[in-house]
Design a protein around this nucleic acid. Sequence first.
DNA 1: CTGCCTGCAAACTCTTTGCACGAAT
DNA 2: ATTCGTGCAAAGAGTTTGCAGGCAG
Lengths: 154, 154
Amino acid sequence: MSIPAARESFRKFLVQKGLRATNQRLAIFDAAFAQPEHFTAEQLLDYARAIDDSVSRATVYRTLPIMTESALLREVDIGSGEKFYRPNREGSGSHVAQVVCVDCDRIFEISAPFMEWYGSTVSSKLNLTPISQRLQVSAHCNVLRQTGTCPRRG
Amino acid sequence: MSIPAARESFRKFLVQKGLRATNQRLAIFDAAFAQPEHFTAEQLLDYARAIDDSVSRATVYRTLPIMTESALLREVDIGSGEKFYRPNREGSGSHVAQVVCVDCDRIFEISAPFMEWYGSTVSSKLNLTPISQRLQVSAHCNVLRQTGTCPRRG
DNA sequence: CTGCCTGCAAACTCTTTGCACGAAT
DNA sequence: ATTCGTGCAAAGAGTTTGCAGGCAG
């Protein structure tokens, strides 16, 4: 999905929810969709302020759940105190695992199709209906161990 | 593993690491292993104080990572602000998924053996060596939806 | 004895919230 | 005009840390 198209989706989502398409919300959206990698709320604040310097931290935190609910943004919690986010340019993204390299702190994503099947196992064993699934892998960098330097670290 | 045996394992772990087996650490350990369910750091503080009222919050927070490292305790992060812990009475516990019911806030655990196999996929695709894997499922209670009451909620 | 461990309380990080002003519809 | 959204700053939750004194080895 192109950025202007995604932006239009977001605007429609806001209207449909009875919310207003303010400059700040759109600036935050644009900032989020300009990111190639995962980012934190604080980073998003910086990026958004570069577009519209009236954006405040509070509005970023108030807009993040809206974007997440619209499914245009995905929340990635790696259990590190702060949450990460990334634009969801493809489809649902619900069958993706996060792989966190503890050496370079980078977050990779890799498909994990069996997670879909796993949901039915949960349903039948516990009588629960799955809403979302998160598979998260912590890992060491092989290159770092072999050569002493992580290629992704400075 | 019986509680006294687990306690002895913990004591040995401390000695081996050059750490001291203080009354507080052992009280915290005993409190943790007396729990049938997941618990938070704050709850553990209460439980430990019932055993030894000199235990402080700081020591609980300082002891939790030690117990986690010893693999006698497992950390369960469901992305809710606070972390949960549970005694690891069985084996490694690395191939277990957490299922969190958003209706009753209960945490279930269910085996997910394919996670072991998944590690090798990660290795080959990203050149990373997996350290740990966590699969977490959020779910709704079917009984609540059908009958209007969650059997596990008051 | 020696130095790790402890309790206390303050600090810290990330996130949320109350309030009065401002802007979208 | 109305009403929702905003920035600011303070509050909040959970966790970490500096320090002076205490206890295990």
